[in-house]
Amino acid sequence: MRDRLAALRLEFHAGSAQVQPVGAGIPWLGFVVFPTHRRVKARKVVQATRRLNGRYAAWPRGEISFADFDASVQGWINHVRYADSWGLRTHVLEPFVI
């Protein structure tokens, strides 16, 4: 494997590449990918919740427009729709009363 990667001018990082069963999930771009489904990483949910709560609080104060807040919500929804996240979206967006 190392020779093949070297031929492609790629470097193998032994510390980062650990052999694990596929059933344990593979972290990838903010998701954990399993053979049958995808989940959003927990820390990404926490970050998004904090960011959206902050932007929701900034909207009535006039620091951002509703369009900016809505764009943030729509962007997050667009990202997490690639996972099995219907319940997650409902839970995270429930506090936002418009």
Rank of each mutant, 00 (worst) to 15 (best):
Arg61Gly: 03
Arg61Thr: 03
Arg61Lys: 15
Gly62Trp: 03
Gly62Val: 04
Gly62Gln: 01
Gly62Ala: 07
Glu63Thr: 05
Glu63Cys: 00
Glu63Met: 04
Glu63Arg: 05
Glu63Asn: 03
Glu63Pro: 00
Ile64Arg: 09
Ile64Val: 13
Ile64Thr: 05
Ile64Trp: 10
Ser65Ala: 14
Ser65Phe: 04
Ser65Glu: 09
Ser65Met: 05
Phe66Cys: 05
Phe66Gly: 13
Phe66His: 14
Phe66Val: 05
Phe66Lys: 08
Phe66Asn: 00
Ala67Ser: 09
Ala67Val: 05
Ala67Met: 00
Asp68Trp: 00
Asp68Ser: 09
Asp68Cys: 01
Asp68Phe: 00
Asp68Pro: 00
Asp68Tyr: 01
Asp68Leu: 03
Phe69Gly: 02
Phe69Gln: 03
Phe69Asp: 04
Phe69Leu: 14
Asp70Arg: 12
Asp70Lys: 09
Asp70Phe: 06
Asp70Pro: 01
Asp70Cys: 01
Ala71Asn: 04
Ala71Thr: 13
Ala71Ile: 06
Ala71Trp: 05
Ala71Val: 03
Ala71Met: 02
Ser72Thr: 05
Ser72Ala: 15
Ser72Asp: 15
Ser72Glu: 15
Val73Ala: 03
Val73Leu: 11
Val73Tyr: 04
Gln74Phe: 05
Gln74Leu: 12
Gln74Asp: 13
Gly75Asn: 05
Gly75Trp: 12
Gly75Ser: 11
Trp76Pro: 06
Trp76Met: 06
Trp76Ala: 10
Trp76Gly: 07
Trp76Gln: 02
Ile77Lys: 14
Asn78Arg: 10
Asn78Ser: 13
Asn78Ala: 15
His79Leu: 05
His79Arg: 12
His79Glu: 03
His79Met: 08
His79Val: 07
His79Thr: 14
Val80Trp: 00
Val80Ala: 03
Val80Leu: 02
Val80Cys: 02
Arg81Ser: 14
Arg81Thr: 12
Tyr82Lys: 02
Tyr82Asn: 06
Tyr82Glu: 08
Tyr82Leu: 12
Tyr82Thr: 03
Tyr82Pro: 00
Tyr82Ser: 10
Ala83Val: 12
Ala83Ile: 08
Ala83Lys: 03
Ala83Thr: 09
Ala83Cys: 12
Asp84Arg: 15
Ser85Asn: 08
Ser85Asp: 11
Ser85Arg: 02
Ser85Trp: 11
Trp86Gly: 04
Trp86His: 12
Trp86Tyr: 10
Trp86Lys: 14
Trp86Met: 07
Gly87His: 11
Gly87Glu: 14
Leu88Ile: 10
Leu88Asn: 07
Leu88Phe: 10
Arg89Gln: 14
Arg89Phe: 01
Thr90Ile: 08
Thr90His: 13
Thr90Ser: 09
Thr90Tyr: 02
His91Cys: 00
His91Met: 07
His91Ala: 15
Val92Leu: 06
Val92Met: 04
Val92Ile: 15
Val92Lys: 01
Val92Tyr: 06
Val92Ser: 03
Leu93Cys: 05
Leu93Trp: 12
Leu93Tyr: 13
Glu94Lys: 13
Glu94Phe: 09
Glu94Asn: 07
Glu94Cys: 01
Glu94Ser: 11
Glu94Arg: 15
Glu94Gln: 15
Pro95Gln: 02
Pro95Gly: 04
Pro95Ile: 04
Pro95Asn: 07
Pro95Val: 07
Pro95Asp: 06
Phe96Cys: 02
Phe96Ser: 09
Val97Arg: 13
Val97Leu: 09
Val97Lys: 14
